[in-house]
Write a protein that binds this DNA or RNA. Sequence first.
DNA 1: CTGAAAGCGCTTACAG
DNA 2: CTGAAAGCGCTTACAG
Lengths: 375, 375
Amino acid sequence: MPELSERWKLALAMDRKPKTPLRPQAHRRPAGDLPPDTTGTRPSGKPAVTIRDVARHGGVSIATVSRVINNEAQGVSPKTRARIQSLVKELNYRPSRIGQALRGQATDTYALVISNIQNSLYAAIAWELERRLNDGGGVMLLFNTNENADLQDRCLAEINARHVSGLFILCAVESRSLRQTVAQYHTVFINRRVTSLGETSFVGVDDYAAARDVVSMIVEARHLPLGVIHGPLYSDTSASRLRGLRDALHEKGIPLEAGDIREADLSMDGGYRHARELLRQKTYRALFCGSDQIAYGAYRACCERGLAVPDDIQIYGFDGNPLNEWLAPWLNTVRIPHTSFASEAIRQLASLREGGVHRSIILPYDIVAGSMNGR
Amino acid sequence: MPELSERWKLALAMDRKPKTPLRPQAHRRPAGDLPPDTTGTRPSGKPAVTIRDVARHGGVSIATVSRVINNEAQGVSPKTRARIQSLVKELNYRPSRIGQALRGQATDTYALVISNIQNSLYAAIAWELERRLNDGGGVMLLFNTNENADLQDRCLAEINARHVSGLFILCAVESRSLRQTVAQYHTVFINRRVTSLGETSFVGVDDYAAARDVVSMIVEARHLPLGVIHGPLYSDTSASRLRGLRDALHEKGIPLEAGDIREADLSMDGGYRHARELLRQKTYRALFCGSDQIAYGAYRACCERGLAVPDDIQIYGFDGNPLNEWLAPWLNTVRIPHTSFASEAIRQLASLREGGVHRSIILPYDIVAGSMNGR
DNA sequence: CTGAAAGCGCTTACAG
DNA sequence: CTGAAAGCGCTTACAG
């Protein structure tokens, strides 16, 4: 033990840290090869300057440096504080999040698990979340499940191995380790709830009511007969939209045959294939699609069949994809407030971190009627 | 010192870790309030089970557990190994990346800095990167710069505070701390190089040649006169595309007046506004756009003016956005191989980590002619 | 084959 | 106001 102290003193005198005898990954490098940092600028992935460096240059203890960088109100004289602060700037010191995390602090690292980043609506929500987290000094880990339970479990496992400060799941699927992860991390579900989980934090719209509104719109405009391509029923969101549609049609006495309804996955290709089938069997005046992505696929099927949208056939989507006004002005849709989704999700996560309770935050939606392409 | 040992022995005997006397964040919780983990399942953000728990239950040292989970070939008897392995499964133990990172190991955490996630081409590349990194057991931190140097610096600062194993920058801008970050972390630039940085790793296409090919296509089809809306010239990619265009037109003796050229930012709105201006002043037969996003905006401007695309006016884009075949079949574009972008970028990063040298990887592109919307 | 120990970069209760 | 020390979860050279 005294020997160590000696080494330390010596090291400090030399203004050098004593090198730990460990040489990580040394086995990967054949003996005789160049040592790892011969160039002096070899990318190391490690912070160049540590709290110890700042302390040494400032002639104070690391405790004092820590107090300064954490802006502790007390415990540091104004003079010392100012000196260390300028030293931090000068040395370009940034405290390692890794060290902080291990010490038990918040990492300000958040995870976003997203079912499909190719959906520009989801990308827009991801972007909003990322921007707002950055504004608050946080960062975002992005995971993509592709609507697959095994992939989602793998994402959750990776999240479990890091200390994240919170978790957003944009369109979760049921998966083995979902329950445990949700119990371990503050979690906010976005746009899709997992009902089997019981009480959770959720941000979304009233999909059931929105679907009913769409039906009213369709019926008033007499866009019948109607074909339906809904999303997968494992998604509570898709299921609610379908229920709203069915109930509203039923109440209005409008029949819907089994052949008029098809279930597609949440993709353009899914919408395309099922629309093609539908259009083959009957002349529809409108297609109700469970999402805008599905609607895009349906659009292509209509075009290929020589049907003009919206003159020959109307397409109804769901989501209010930000792309619509540019590339799909013909689309009727339900605009969900994706910007508010992000801000409310972050607000709810902050509330959870402060001990708040789970809440369902149901935001208002808009019905958007498609235009004739601006002409 | 001996006192500590006593505490440890006692603790081990009780099968409990001795609690550190530190109570992080205790000051945030008013005295008399409930203690943090009264519920027993309060989200903690910390791994539930640590290497120490496994060691204790297995009756071995943490060193042995470490050897097992890292699959060290030697140093553990097969019997012990098997026992610990099943214990790891049983306890659902996952080594903390934080602990590993601090110890100097690779984190398998990669950062992707992206200039605009709303661009579906970039989203597609992000998705490919994420998927491939996940396949290799890695995770991806996502950052969005919005083409802004200050925001990019903030992203780089956050990256600096974590030990990332590598960095991808999809469309970098020049910024103060870029050079230092690139020196510190293995970095691969994608789709846009920063020439001032000297030799770097890069994955992209030959934008100059591609632009020349587009000009040939335009001239052969006699889609003239031509209006040009190029991307911002701080982007080397945009600048190369413009140079290719200018040179090719010049060689073919086709004049291009200053009024026919406009610089837009890389957004649909930018394309829209500039196309509107162009269309006001002359009757163009074609618009050359520096990116597909710009082209989408131009499309809207054409529609609003009552011009049919592609019958009245042709639109030429650049990127091969995956959305095109669904929503913009009228678009002529240069398809960059975004899937290969991801795989080559990862391959190059792996090469750098193994001591490889910087390389420019120039991939082939396709010229895609727009269709008449499938009709 | 196995374990004790050092140390990665931090924060904070405790003692001066 | 300030510092020494403990410890977060790991890995590995070293010693047995």
